[in-house]
Each structure stands twice: as structure tokens, then as C-alpha cells.
Write a protein that binds this DNA or RNA. Sequence first.
DNA 1: GTCTATAGCTTGATAGAC
DNA 2: GTCTATCAAGCTATAGAC
Lengths: 184, 184
Amino acid sequence: MVPRKIGDDMLLDRITEIFRAHGYEGASLSRITEATGLQRASLYHRFPGGKAEMVAAVLERTGEWLGANVLGPLCQSGPPRERVERMCERLKEFYSDGGHSCLLDTLSLGDEGSELRASIEAAMTAWFDALSKVARDAGYKRGEARRRAEDAMVLIQGALVVTRATGNRKPFARALDRLPGVLT
Amino acid sequence: MVPRKIGDDMLLDRITEIFRAHGYEGASLSRITEATGLQRASLYHRFPGGKAEMVAAVLERTGEWLGANVLGPLCQSGPPRERVERMCERLKEFYSDGGHSCLLDTLSLGDEGSELRASIEAAMTAWFDALSKVARDAGYKRGEARRRAEDAMVLIQGALVVTRATGNRKPFARALDRLPGVLT
DNA sequence: GTCTATAGCTTGATAGAC
DNA sequence: GTCTATCAAGCTATAGAC
């Protein structure tokens, strides 16, 4: 028996980083090999389905993390504003102050009609619903709450793109500051 | 003499589409060959520098189009609100109602320290400056004008990402509707 | 200016030893 | 469970005919 060089958690962390930074086509096995320390054949032992299985695992795991650490706090009890502020703290670390990209952005490139699209849409919808709910709890009617949830998603994604494209992290920081005002 | 199968303008149009849809790594010569009708060797005759020269040409040309059709109208005379509305009309067609992505987004993936970064940053800055100027013309002081210019860029880029990730073009349409209010 | 043919490298994926 | 070695297919790029 040969011991594992790297645990499932850390392995998926490293692979997730690659997909976030390079997108699906740019996430080559060479880059993943370099980032994880595992050779090609070892990666196929952990993910027999290859890249497709890797990205599916990455999306599922990230969705779970998002549900537990972002959407969860958003739907708990307590004042809506405090719930949103808690989400912002989690987002700040999740995106490393804007230094990391969002999988929903990088994986939605040139991906017509694949199974990824379904997962991405589902993740977007789950996030949107949670934001919508907190806006309703803050007193907005359904239509206005949905608009503000959409504004919040646009704000987050836009700030990440502008931050990445300019190399300046301030837009992301300012977006997080503005989020509570958008949703409550 | 063999006649050109495709003019420079249309050729660059087609190549630009590929880079917008797939990013740099996803824009393979096979896809470009298919989209342009030119074989590999013919592409290298038009762009001796290969993919690097293609993407540089795409960025330069798109920057010129942006300057003439988006930033130009923004800096002309006339009421600021009308100038912004004119920009929104151009953006609507440029992004095909949200159906096309922004090069500043798709080309900024996994592109640490390349020459592309410089071009992307420069394009972002030019756009930001033009938006900033129109906000000042609308009566905002310098700091507030810069904040609103940043909000506008975040709004546009975020709406494009959300629209692409959800497959629903309404967020982009609503973003364009909100732009005049953000800048004036 | 376009093409076919080809070189050489990288990709995703597999076989089999330890 | 990891590894080296290997495969076919894809990639960027080039040579040379027309």
C-alpha cells in the first residue's frame, strides 16, 4: 500500500484554484499536475472520468461551501443587515479580496450546451434565491427584492472582473461595502 | 495572384468573435480556421506572428472601435445624459444585447504578466477616464465622478457575466437602463 | 494569397510495474 | 496509490507548390 501524497480536501483545493484562474480549457493536466504534485496517472486514479469529473467535483464542492458559508448565514435568523454583512465577510475571504476569480465566470466561457452550463445556472439560481429572500426579509416586496438580488449578483461579478482586468483590488472592496445597502 | 477570400475587416470580425467566446487558450487555430474559411497557413500569411499577433490586432481594433463609437460620443458636446444614452445604444449592439462577452473579461484569464495585461489595463483606463469625464460634466465632483465611473464599469461587466452564466439577457438590458442614472 | 503536407510539441487518457 | 512509459489526437507553426 502506498500512502496518499495529498488528501481529498487539499487536492480539490488545488484543482479548484487552477479552474478559477484558467477556466476549463486553460486548466491543463500539466498545470494540475504541477499544482497538486500528482502525476497524470495518479490524477486519473482519483478522478477516473478525467477533467470532466474533476470540474464536476470542483463545482459540487464549491457549491456546498457556498451553501454552508454564504447562503446559510444569509437565510438564518437575525437582522437582515447583519446577515448580509456576514455574507460579505465570507465573500471577502472566498475571493481573496478580489484576487481570485469566480468559477461561474471562468467556467461559463465557450461552454455551449454542456452539462457544466446546467450546474452553473443552478448555482446562480440558488445564490439569487437566497439574496432575494434576505431582501424580502428586509422589507422589500417580491419584485423589488428580486431586482435588488440581481443588482447584488451583478455588483459582485462585475467587481471581480474589473478587479482582475485592472489589477486593482479596490473595486472589489468597495463592492462589498456597498452590498448591505443594495440588499437592505 | 490569388484573390483574397476574405477582407481584413471581416477577417478580424470573425477572429474577434472567437476570442470573445472562448478566451485566449480556447481560441484554437482550428476554431479560427472554421470561422474564417482560411486554412492555417493562410492565417499565418495574414498574421505572421500567429495567435499572439491575432489577439493583438483584435485588441487594437476593438479599442479603436470603442474609442470611436463609445468613448467618442461620451466626450462630445451636448447634455451628459444624452451622451450616456448614446453610449448605451452602442453598447447594446456591441454586446449583442448581452449575447457576446467582453474581451476585457475573457482575455484577462490566467494571463499573468503577459503583454496582453498591459493592453487590457490600458483599455480599461481609457474607458474609465471617459466615463469619469461625463460624470464630471453632469455636475459631480472629481471623487464622486470617479466612483460613479467605476460603478458603471462594474455594472456593465457584471451584467455581462450574469447574463452569460444564466443564459438570460434581461440583466444586461436592465443594466443599460440603469446606466444613465448612475452617471448623471 | 491560398493551399496541402508536415514537423514537433502538448494535450487528455491508458497500460502496467511497484 | 503512485509512478514511468506510451498512445492517439490536438495544438502552433513552417515549407513549398500553385
